[in-house]
Amino acid sequence: MYKAMIDKDTYISILEPRHAEELYHVIDANRENIGEWLSFPMKTNNVEDSKIFIEKSLKRLSENNGYWAGIWHENSIAGSIGYLFMDWSARKTEIGYWLGKDYVGKGLATLACKQLIDHSFNDLRLRKVEINVATKNCKSKAIPERLGFMQEGIIRNYEYLNGEYHDRVIYGLLKEDWEQENINNLGENETWTK
C-alpha cells in the first residue's frame, strides 16, 4: 500500500490491520502523554480497539474521505498522522498527528505534516489544509507555525478532557501560501516548479 519516504530512517504508510498490535503498544506505552491532549488513548484498551480503528480508517480511505497513516522511524511505529476528513466541495482537509514520547523533538511530526501538505496540494489538488491544536499544547502548535500556517481563530471550550475544558486554535494554510513558502525557502542550487 501507499508508502512515502521522509528520510532514510523515516517513512509514513497507510495503517493496515497487521499494524494493530504495534500501534496499540505505542499508544499503551504513551497513554499519559498522548492523553494529555487527545481523548483516543482512553478509548484504546486493547489490540482489538486499534484493529477497529484501522478498519474504520481503511473504510474512510475507500470512501475517499481521509485516512490515518503510521509514522515509522528506524523500523518502529513512532506515531500516526492522517487526514481527518476530505471536504471535496470546499477542497480542504484537516491534518491530525501524534507521536510517542521517545520520538518527540526529532522533527518527525513536522516532516510528516510537510509530506501530507505536499500531497494535499500537489496530488489531491486541494486548496486549503487546516490543523487544530489545543491552545496550551505548545509543542504541537509549533508545527503549523513552523510550516507557515496562519492562525485563523480559537474555538473556546472545544473539548472536555482530563477534568478541564480545552480551547482549540485553528490554523489554516492555503495552496498559494505553501507555494510562496517553498519559493522563499529554496536553496541556491534548488529549483521549484508548480
Rank of each mutant, 00 (worst) to 15 (best):
Q180K: 14
V169E: 10
Y160I: 02
G153P: 09
N157A: 12
Y160W: 11
T191G: 05
L161D: 03
E179I: 10
R168W: 12
Q151H: 11
D167S: 08
Q151S: 15
W192D: 02
D167K: 03
D167L: 07
E152M: 12
I183F: 11
E188F: 10
G187A: 11
D177G: 05
T191V: 10
E159D: 02
G187Q: 13
N184Y: 05
M150G: 01
T193A: 12
Q180T: 10
N162C: 01
Y158T: 02
D177C: 02
G163V: 05
D167R: 04
M150D: 13
L186I: 06
Y165P: 00
G153A: 09
E176Q: 12
G172Y: 05
Q180H: 09
N162E: 01
F149N: 02
N182I: 01
T191E: 10
E181Q: 04
G153T: 10
N162F: 01
T191Q: 09
N157K: 15
E188P: 09
T193P: 00
N189R: 04
I155F: 15
I154H: 05
M150N: 14
R156L: 08
I154T: 15
I155E: 13
I183M: 08
L174F: 14
E190C: 03
Y165A: 00
E152S: 09
H166V: 00
L186V: 06
G187D: 13
G153W: 09
I155N: 12
K194Y: 12
T193N: 13
N182Q: 13
Y158R: 13
N162D: 00
D177Y: 06
L186P: 04
G187Y: 11
G163S: 06
N189I: 02
N157E: 15
E164R: 12
L173T: 09
D167V: 04
L174Y: 14
G187R: 15
T191H: 07
G172M: 06
I154R: 11
K175I: 08
V169I: 15
Y171K: 03
R156F: 03
N184Q: 13
L173N: 07
T191D: 07
D177P: 01
E176S: 12
R156Q: 12
Q151P: 14
T193S: 15
H166N: 02
G187M: 11
E159Y: 03
K194S: 14
E188A: 14
Y160V: 02
Q180G: 01
K175L: 07
Y171N: 05
E190G: 08
Q151V: 09
L174K: 05
E176L: 03
N189D: 12
I170H: 03
L161M: 07
G172C: 05
Y158A: 14
E179L: 11
L174H: 11
Y160L: 04
Q180F: 02
N182T: 01
L173S: 05
N189W: 04
G163K: 06
W192Y: 15
W192H: 13
E176Y: 11
L174N: 10
L186C: 08
G163R: 06
G153D: 10
T193F: 12
E181W: 01
F149H: 03
V169H: 03
Y160F: 15
I155T: 15
I183H: 07
E176N: 11
I154Y: 04
Q151N: 13
L173A: 09
F149P: 03
R168T: 13
E152Y: 06
G163C: 06
